[in-house]
Write a protein that binds this DNA or RNA. Structure first.
Lengths: 215, 215
DNA sequence: GTCTATATCCAGATAGAC
DNA sequence: GTCTATCTGGATATAGAC
């Protein structure tokens, strides 16, 4: 690597560090004030810089949201992807939902950004969005471990997981009213997948456009 | 009733009509621009009045959101409460979920206001919130029709319904990717409730605080 | 890259005349 | 009740000196 190259790398890493510092300030703010309440003025003050300086690192407020979305999606994919420490395929499903709700419940603003459409006019870029797709593929694999591959069952599974998370966060934040039902949910779902009635499956298809990260 | 009383009624009904007109303008705006994008300036222009006049009818912006919440909750309760035209208890469940997703999918902004926490600092008043509780009681009754009364099963049911609605709206707005799975969901749920495994129930309890309308 | 200073605009809310 | 006019403060974003 050339001296010039190294200098460029150094500068670039400095720049990246500054970006990360700004994003950390942003997370702290939305944690306290709510996702929609983020303002560049507060953000700059929090990060110990001035508003114009923020624009040296991000083109716009939406660009900041997009970078935050990218971080969140990355964290989400990583959180879901750490190896599942069991040989029981059913336990892998249970643990997967557990991690899902754990991740979402930990930071409400992050959950809003990632899974709800709360910022008018904001849509994540394809790059920021990519890790969320990986995470969905992971869910598909955990189901396949249980011999469940039907796309309709995958859709039912995502709805199940989403509903559980949503109810837990909305109606019992910090509690375990729905979390403790995870085992029952998995029982119910697996039982249904294996039921004779389910064997007589009809096939349908329909296109879909997507809002928010897949789950 | 006295002449004076009638005059007061008339004035009051005029006032109510004006309030409703403002709220209609508000709904039109949030439908087009998003719930969080509502501004009193645009609202006034849309309603054919000026900003200060809005304050003759509502104390603040939050009061407008609250009135909108009240309308939405009322509509929701009414929508869910119209008699179910079948004797089959299972079909009542199916129809109930169908109505739920239909109501939510019809207007995204209304769904956000009613079921998500997207406006920083806004919480509905107890009065506006009341109809939502009635709606939840309705769900409980539809389950009871099927011999399902366990509170934990009610929680599972609400999570199921919520998840289905959420996935449908977020990932296939205007489509039927999850709607067409309603029958399967009900099959799965009822089958689980009636399963022998479920008979050996353990009892637990935990308190809960609530955010958003119950569902 | 970082600042001061400022542009431009919009927000929610109020004063006071009619 | 409704208006004009205005207050106060916030927003995002940019110009230009250093």
């Amino acid at each position: 690597m050339s001296k010039g190259g190294a200098a460029i790398d150094w500068r670039e890493s400095r720049r990246q560090a500054a970006r990360v510092a700004i994003l950390e300030a942003a997370w702290a703010l939305v944690r306290e004030e709510g996702l929609a309440a983020l303002s560049l003025r507060d953000l700059a003050r929090r990060a110990g810089i001035t508003t114009p300086t923020v624009y040296a690192y991000f083109d716009s407020k939406h660009a900041i949201y997009d970078a935050m979305f990218g971080q969140a999606a990355e964290d989400f994919a990583a959180h879901m992807a750490v190896p599942y420490d069991t040989d029981d395929p059913r336990e892998v499903l249970v643990a997967g939902v557990g991690r899902f709700v754990e991740f979402c419940a930990r930071e409400f603003a992050r959950y809003q950004l990632l899974f709800q459409r709360t910022i008018p006019g904001f849509e994540p870029s394809a790059e920021s969005y990519a890790p969320a797709i990986r995470a969905l593929a992971g869910a598909r694999e955990r189901l396949a471990l249980n011999g469940i591959t039907d796309p309709e069952l995958l859709d039912m599974w995502t709805a199940l997981s989403t509903g559980l998370v949503d109810q837990q966060i909305s109606n019992d934040p910090g509690g375990d009213r729905w979390v403790r039902l995870i085992d029952d949910f998995v029982d119910m779902f697996v039982m249904y997948c294996r039921s004779p009635k389910r064997v007589l499956t009809r096939v349908k298809k329909s296109p879909s456009r997507t809002k928010g990260a897949p789950r």
